[in-house]
Design a protein around this nucleic acid. Structure first.
Lengths: 205, 205
DNA sequence: ACTCTTTCGATACGACCCGTAGCGTAACTG
DNA sequence: CAGTTACGCTACGGGTCGTATCGAAAGAGT
């Protein structure tokens, strides 16, 4: 989205090191200053590059910050822990650990807030962050079906996947970012009990 | 937080009409422009007052916007609909309707994002918005216990109230603001089924 | 009526930031 | 070496924040 590949045959190549330095500087500045007080000049100074270099790669502040944030969520995974309950608790704690890092927390809230009145930014965030994490729900469901813990699909599972995703991500984000209370193993266990009990009741209809 | 009561014995009184005009203008500007592009000069112009008048009442932009937002959540209520399920569905839809208003949506996200790196603002928001809404959960629980739908408390119900609150508010906020999909009667019904089933399973332990 | 106190409107101001433009230089290619 | 592109640097216009200043207005008390 920043460096063109086609038509670039000669000339001084872009510094990949500068890319990393800029994104790191942007994340660091976002943590320390927040969205409003983050300035492009400051990011450039932290990265040790000129401000014009930032604008050669990203069109504006929003684009740069979103790119800096998107990479933070790539580390989420869903290792097979042997049972649906363990998988859910595992991903809840993993997600919570990510949100406990000030970088991720500040970045996510800032980006979501900015997207509230920017449709293009909203689409970009949904594609880069939200839809990507839904894979975790889909994968966990598939494993649980293979284990026989939940019944196989009858029809389109999209609605149920969306509901589960909103409940998990919503509850964790709300507790971590709005209520500002810890998402520890005890909370994860109680939350998982509610979620699995609820899904069992819902599928029994 | 703005008008002092002690020591104010004489002089020209503050215009209460200006207060309302400023808060209305701030909400309107927040909807149209978002946090980043909302300017104090613009709010002053919309309200028909001088910019200095804003700074005489609020220390800075954050304080003004938070005050403008806090009032939006006062309209939430929990009418008795006769059953726990109906009460939950009612408050979910009511909350969702509030979040569907661009004013509330933009304002909430902007304020939460701003609070991520501002401890004082965070405390203010929790006291003014979060803790206030927990009353809805406490009241709904009490009614359900009186009806015999859920067992009475054994010990401190704080943890369960907090969990329920995070699940309800988190799921609704996440669907409405992050997933950007509608919270309609169908979704509310399915969500309530999951929640009540989960609570029944949790209390059966 | 007169004074005192406080608020109000209007204007100007310094500081900061965004995003752009121009220029000379560095790095890489054929 | 010539051509092309990225880079650092500087400067700029436009906008905003928050403050300062000053005269006028609106009440309260005597």
């Amino acid at each position: 989205m920043c460096a063109r590949e086609t038509g670039r045959r000669t000339g001084r190549p872009r510094s990949a090191e500068a890319d990393r330095a800029i994104l790191d500087a942007a994340r660091q500045a976002l943590v320390e200053l927040g969205w409003g007080r983050l300035s492009m000049g400051d990011v450039a100074a932290r990265a040790g590059v000129a401000k014009t270099t930032l604008y050669r790669r990203w069109a504006n502040k929003n684009e740069l910050v979103v790119d800096a944030v998107a990479a933070l969520f790539d580390e989420l995974e869903l290792p097979d822990r042997g049972s649906l309950r363990a998988d859910v608790e595992g991903v809840v704690l993993q997600f919570a650990a990510l949100l406990e890092q000030p970088a991720t927390r500040t970045a996510l809230m800032a980006v979501v807030a900015e997207a509230t009145h920017d449709e293009a930014l909203r689409r970009r965030i949904r594609a880069a962050i939200v839809d990507r994490q839904k894979r975790l729900v889909i994968e966990g469901r598939r494993r649980a079906q293979e284990r026989g813990e939940i019944p196989p699909d009858d029809g389109d599972p999209t609605a149920q996947v969306d509901l589960i995703f909103d409940v998990i991500a919503g509850a964790v984000v709300h507790r971590a970012l709005v209520s500002c209370e810890p998402v520890d193993a005890d909370w994860a266990a109680r939350f998982t009990t509610v979620l699995l009990g609820g899904l069992a009741a819902a599928s029994a209809i």
